[in-house]
């Protein structure tokens, strides 16, 4: 089960309101390569993992991603605090504001609501872990793009932390795949699916 701890993984302290930046960063809350999709992808894939290292990797990383979802929600919330009437009309936030006010909703920056179609569960460890390697790279690239678009040092501080985690997770998923390979058919890893075939 899950137990909530009343603290963030990394401190988020944003001094300046910036609704335009919030409307970009929301994409890591509910966009195609965001933290909601990451956590659900890993926490769902873990059920069909045949080896303890892989069950642990997907549980631990999936849980950490929930903590990242909370950090992104906090960034968006703090960027949209105490908005003035002028700020809700300008700065590209109006189309978000009309539907959600200053609530935090899982959507991509373009307005497409979070979709399970942006993630996959194949029930095959090579397919799923290879997807996870790509997912970490797509999230890393999104954080690169956020760093290109943002000049708020308070925001960038937290974004840099989140980006660094994607690199570490990529490494661990790669190592997990390697450990799994040692347990699979020596001559042909595709001979059977250890997630399904006995």
């Amino acid at each position: 089960m899950f137990v909530y701890e009343k603290k963030l993984q990394y401190p988020v302290k944003i001094k300046n309101t910036n609704p335009k930046l919030a409307s970009i960063i929301i994409t890591q809350y509910g966009g195609p390569d965001g933290e909601l999709g990451a956590s659900l992808r890993y926490l769902s894939q873990r059920y069909s993992m045949p080896y303890p290292e892989l069950k642990a990797l997907l549980t631990d990383i999936g849980t950490e991603e929930l903590g990242h979802l909370e950090m992104i929600g906090t960034i968006v919330h703090q960027l949209t605090r105490n908005l003035t009437e002028e700020q809700i009309k300008t700065g590209g936030f109006d189309t978000y504001f009309v539907d959600r006010t200053a609530g935090v909703y899982p959507t991509s920056a373009s307005g497409f609501p979070w979709s399970a179609a942006s993630m996959a569960v194949k029930g095959d460890l090579i397919a799923d872990l290879t997807e996870d390697l790509a997912a970490e790279q797509k999230a890393r690239a999104t954080y690169d793009n956020i760093l290109r678009l943002s000049d708020d040092p308070d925001v960038n501080d937290a974004i840099k932390f989140l980006r660094a985690r994607e690199v570490v997770h990529f490494q661990r998923f790669g190592e997990g795949l390697r450990l799994a390979k040692d347990k699979m058919d020596e001559k042909n890893v595709y001979f059977l699916n250890p997630s399904f075939d006995q």
């Binding site: 993984q9 642990a56 990797l57 631990d60 950490e64 570490v168 661990r172 997990g176």
Partner: peptide, 9 residues
């Protein structure tokens, strides 16, 4: 957290 994840592999 970081050591725990390292220890998984």
């Amino acid at each position: 957290d970081e050591l725990g994840l390292y220890l998984v592999t």
